[in-house]
Design a protein around this nucleic acid. Sequence first.
DNA 1: GCGACAG
DNA 2: ATCTTGTCGC
Length: 227
Amino acid sequence: MPRHHPHTTPADAAEAEAVQLRLRRRVRLDDSGPAPGAPGTVVGVDVAYDDGRGIVAAAAVALDAVTLAVVEEATAVGRVTFPYVPGLLAFRELPAVLDALDRLRHTPGLVVCDGYGIAHPRRFGLASHLGVLTGLPAIGVAKNPFVFRHEPPAPHRGAHTPLLDGTEEVGRALRTRDGVKPVFVSPGHRTTCASACAHTLHLTGAYRLPETTRRADRLCREALRAA
DNA sequence: GCGACAG
DNA sequence: ATCTTGTCGC
C-alpha cells in the first residue's frame, strides 16, 4: 500500500513550495559521496507516464561504478498524483522513484537523476529532494536548460561553462560528446559541481546522456508497457 | 501584462 | 513527458 509521504505528496502548489523551502536547508554540498570511478554502485532513475491511464512507471538501475555493468534493476508502477509544474517536478516523480529505489537490494553510492539539483528556482530540484529524503549522494543531469543562463561550452567533450546564481556556480553546461549539445549538470546532495561533472563524464562516452539515465529510461518505458 | 518553463 | 516519418550524416 502507498505510504503517506508528507514530503512528496502535498495537496497543492503552494504547499509544495513550502515543503521545498523547509527541506532545502538539509542539502549538503560536500564531497562525502564517492569519488568518480571509485568502487561501488551508481544508480540511475527515470520515470515514464501514460496520461490516458493516469499511471506512472519508475525504474532504478544499479551499475557497477567501475565497469558500468548493470548489476540490478527495479521498477515500480503507480497512479499519477501530481501535475507537471516547472519547479515542482519532484512532487510528480519522486513517489514512484522512491518506490523503485526501495525495491533495490543494492545501496546506491550515488543516484543520477533526470533534471536538476540545486540549479532550481528555490535551489531544491529533483536531485536535491531525492538526496535529502534518502540521505544518498545525488546529482542531476538535465537535457535542457531551466532557470539559469549559460554561455556555450567549447565544442570538445569535457568543456563546460557555469550556470550562475549571482556569483555562485550552481551547475554547469557540460559537453559530453564532441560537437553535440551539452547536458546540464548540477549537484543534488552530498556532492559538488566539479564532482557531479566528473561523475557525468565517467558515465558517458558513446552517448550524450549518462549510461545510468539511458538504462533507466529504457526500463521504465518497458515497465509502463507491461503495466 | 507577456513569455518562458527540468520532465 | 508524449504524439510521430522520413531523413541527413558518420
